[in-house]
């Protein structure tokens, strides 16, 4: 669109160095070793993943660590066909909420491992309730994207 009015171009670039703290540090150390860690609330007993310092419902420490399953059930998903700033994945991609076996909250990640270009094909393949399994990067950095995606089983 042709510019109709005079504008000033302003750009702000700010680097941040964010502390992981003990809980994220241990969780991401696990990712490097292809392990997904959760923690169990000492009061309600829910298994929370990713691992938490405390339960967001009971507000007490969730300090019992356990390695959770790398398989789970697809709770919901969305096929994104739009490029968002800062997203690591080129569109199209599938954002997904997965209930990892033995856990009590939805875990967010990607579903992939097949051709995503044609939505009608994707629609036939991806079903809520289907089983999925984590696929790992070879070169892991202690980051949430050490899991490449979850693939249908």
């Amino acid at each position: 669109m042709a510019k109709e009015f005079k504008t000033l171009l302003n750009q702000i670039t700010l680097p941040y160095e964010l502390a992981y703290g003990a809980t994220w540090t241990r969780f991401f150390e696990g990712m490097k070793e292809k392990k997904i860690y959760g923690t169990k609330c000492s009061k309600c007993g829910r298994v929370l993943v990713p691992a938490r310092t405390f339960c967001p419902q009971c507000f007490v420490d969730a300090d019992q660590w356990l390695e959770v399953s790398q398989e789970g059930t697809l709770l919901t998903w969305s096929y994104a066909n739009y490029r968002y700033f800062g997203m690591p994945t080129d569109p199209p991609f599938i954002s997904a909420m997965i209930l990892l076996d033995g856990t009590d909250v939805g875990f967010l990640h990607l579903v992939a491992g097949f051709d995503l270009d044609d939505f009608d094909v994707v629609r036939q393949k991806v079903k809520t309730g289907m089983k999925v399994k984590a696929v790992w990067e070879d070169d892991r950095k202690g980051h949430i994207m050490d899991i490449s995606y979850f693939e249908p089983l």
Partner: peptide, 13 residues
């Protein structure tokens, strides 16, 4: 950030 960023994706899920 990597999965929930951008409002439409979340609301679609």
């Amino acid at each position: 950030h990597y999965f929930a960023a951008g409002a439409p994706g979340v609301f679609s899920m």
